[in-house]
Design a protein around this nucleic acid. Sequence first.
DNA 1: TCAAAAGTGTTCGTAATACACCCATGG
DNA 2: CCATGGGTGTATTACGAACACTTTTGA
Lengths: 237, 237
Amino acid sequence: MTSDTYDPSIYPPFAVVVDLVVLTIRDHQLCVLLVERGVEPHKGRKALPGGFVGIDEDLETAAYRELAEETGIKGKHLHLEQLATYGEPNRDPRMRVVSVAHLAFVAELAEPEAGSDAAGVSLEPATLALRWRGNKKLAFDHARILADGVERARSKLEYSTLATSFLPKEFTVGEMRAVYEAVWDTEIDPRNFHRKVMASAGFVEPTGRTTTRGGGRPAQLLRAGPARHLDPPLTRP
Amino acid sequence: MTSDTYDPSIYPPFAVVVDLVVLTIRDHQLCVLLVERGVEPHKGRKALPGGFVGIDEDLETAAYRELAEETGIKGKHLHLEQLATYGEPNRDPRMRVVSVAHLAFVAELAEPEAGSDAAGVSLEPATLALRWRGNKKLAFDHARILADGVERARSKLEYSTLATSFLPKEFTVGEMRAVYEAVWDTEIDPRNFHRKVMASAGFVEPTGRTTTRGGGRPAQLLRAGPARHLDPPLTRP
DNA sequence: TCAAAAGTGTTCGTAATACACCCATGG
DNA sequence: CCATGGGTGTATTACGAACACTTTTGA
């Protein structure tokens, strides 16, 4: 804030919206939730979900609300954080729109089209959506927002415990490895990964049960531990 | 963005401002640039510099403009990045204000009070300003913004080459070590630090000249190298 | 000749990698 | 009994912390 006085008759109107980069893992790929625009501008193109912030609504509250409206997700088992704010004067041709983008990590949603609002909801591989060109290009500056979100996700997995946000409440080490491999788009040695995850204090805790989903020897079922930061970090090759 | 239509007669007015966390090193301490408020609310308190975004002005452009107005700094030898956006409904009692905070690293400014606008500009140790309580407390939610900025600065030094932004164009390894010690508030082994900095490809390059300012054996004068990221990172103890 | 800061060499313990190997299940 | 993934042990290498030591100036 500044000490300048505010005069509404001079000060021009800004619209403030939240846009969401909702990431999830599907088929061993990092996927992003997109909606198809029904109106101009960019009618027919895919866009990040989002909407206006209410006058008495916190930014984070608005982001959670949009997420629920768009996906039907309401549970507490997800991660949502502010990503960055995009405010180029002409990013929306209709008026001056400042978008506070948020980044969400969610566990596999059972057919997200079940969401209330938008019929045109889809899940697309993130790297694919980033490469769309021509009239398939993402609306507005959403390709840039998505790129920033993907890069943030990649680095967050290194030094935070947020990989668990992509997983159901109970999971195996192998399933967590699949998350890292999908987000980083690399292969990871299963044996060393196993050791690092189990040795990292507070990352995961055993439930005592096992599962054989996925075949092979039964794997321990784990749940997320209390730690928020990963020390030492898991580094990508 | 969303497909909702926009109706200005319904949509309430938001003010969009940029606030600046301007950090520099002074007396071996990490310091922040503050201005004293001349009007209510929070009249007489220190606050982060900032101001309204123009209707045709990019967020980053607005941040550079405010920085120049507040400090007189115009040169290209500084770093400025977006920090985060703060939009709680009641963070400003006058109206709904969304603040896009930016973080700047600058080399020692020669008495910043020389700046054009504000007479009440001062440089205060960051950790001190964060501890102010009662009627000396920072205005609005600026203590939280400052805390976020300091934490970001601390971690940026680990994996980026931005320490050079705190230094003049030419500097010595010892002067850079002083930056790390001030920002991290730790002591660092000079010998190991020297080796790491010089071994890190693209971090610094020799100018060929030396200096004896600071006493002792002449030190190589260095300038910032082309690298933006530090690999391997410098880790705090 | 002493203090002070720059810079180099070396030791030593830990951490990461690569991979051999064993385990426990389903088909 | 074989394929599949889970999980353990271990040798080798790489790296970082600690610190002894040398260098080059100003006072």
